[in-house]
């Protein structure tokens, strides 16, 4: 589904990613862990196409196409979904308006007709129940005045409605209490399917207690310093990020 090869990225002349390679197959869940400043968020932003990052080397192929050549909205329409670490507040644009605009943009891209208003409402009301948000959130401005947990659940709601192929969760667990974390994890788990892949970017292992990854990668200093299965996360939790420095010096 997604193949990253030797990706190098710079921000304002400072190299952040220094040769990342990843291969994610349909249905897989990959966790990317790493200390602060390791380049985790840069990776998710580059995949979603945010401006301000300069790719100096490497390729990213998504469903056989070059992802880096696509505009952000094209990536979204092709099924790349980024759940933001800090979802922005947009006063005046209602949540439901955004959902409808996004869903129809994707449907149009696929050559489908616009969704019927009644069907859409039914769909959204069903999905919003799953993330345990009140229906009134649909009519409020996007994330406007939402709590941290509500914002994250709103991201999962969008994910559920838009049904992407590749979901990138950028530190979705940060700032959540255990109940909110469980709700978010349940939302993600219910979306797992053989043709949908996930990248979980996280600082802590605890999210992985609720979402079982197929692979875990440790990112440090702009490189993947170790990859393994779910047990790697536990090992990392136990040994702490200091262990990463050892891995780096051994590798070097």
């Amino acid at each position: 589904m997604l193949k990253i090869e030797n990706l190098h990225v710079r921000v304002d002349d400072t190299p952040i990613l220094k040769g990342i390679s990843l291969d994610i197959k349909p249905g897989e869940v990959h966790a990317i862990m790493g200390p602060n400043g390791s380049g985790k968020s840069t990776l998710s932003h580059v995949l979603a196409g945010r401006a301000g990052y300069e790719v100096t080397a490497g390729t990213v192929s998504y469903l056989g196409r070059s992802l880096l050549e696509m505009k952000p909205e094209e990536r979204a329409r092709e099924g790349v979904f980024l759940a933001f670490q800090y979802p922005v507040e947009i006063a005046g644009v209602s949540n439901i308006y955004l959902l409808k605009a996004a869903l129809n943009a994707i449907r149009k891209h696929k050559g489908l007709s616009e969704v019927d208003a009644m069907d859409f409402l039914k769909l959204v009301k069903e999905k919003i129940k799953a993330v345990n948000l009140d229906e009134q959130f649909l009519y409020r401005g996007v994330n406007e005045g939402f709590s941290g947990g509500e914002k994250k659940r709103n991201e999962i709601l969008q994910m559920a409605v838009l049904e992407p192929r590749l979901c990138i969760l950028d530190e979705t667990d940060s700032g959540l209490d255990i109940d909110a974390l469980r709700l978010v994890a349940e939302g993600v788990n219910s979306l797992r399917s053989p043709d949908r892949s996930f990248i979980l970017v996280t600082h802590y292992q605890r999210l992985l207690n609720y979402i079982k990854p197929d692979c875990v990668h440790v990112l440090a200093y702009g490189r993947i310093v170790k990859s393994g299965d779910a047990s790697l996360a536990l090992e990392l939790e136990k040994k702490g990020y200091g262990w990463v420095d050892q891995l780096v010096s051994v590798g070097a």
Binding site: A48, R50, K71, A76, V88, A105
Partner: peptide, 13 residues
């Protein structure tokens, strides 16, 4: 930021 957020949801610029 808001423009990018909307783009990342499939809305053109």
């Amino acid at each position: 930021e808001a423009v990018f957020y909307l783009e990342s949801r499939g809305v053109d610029e």
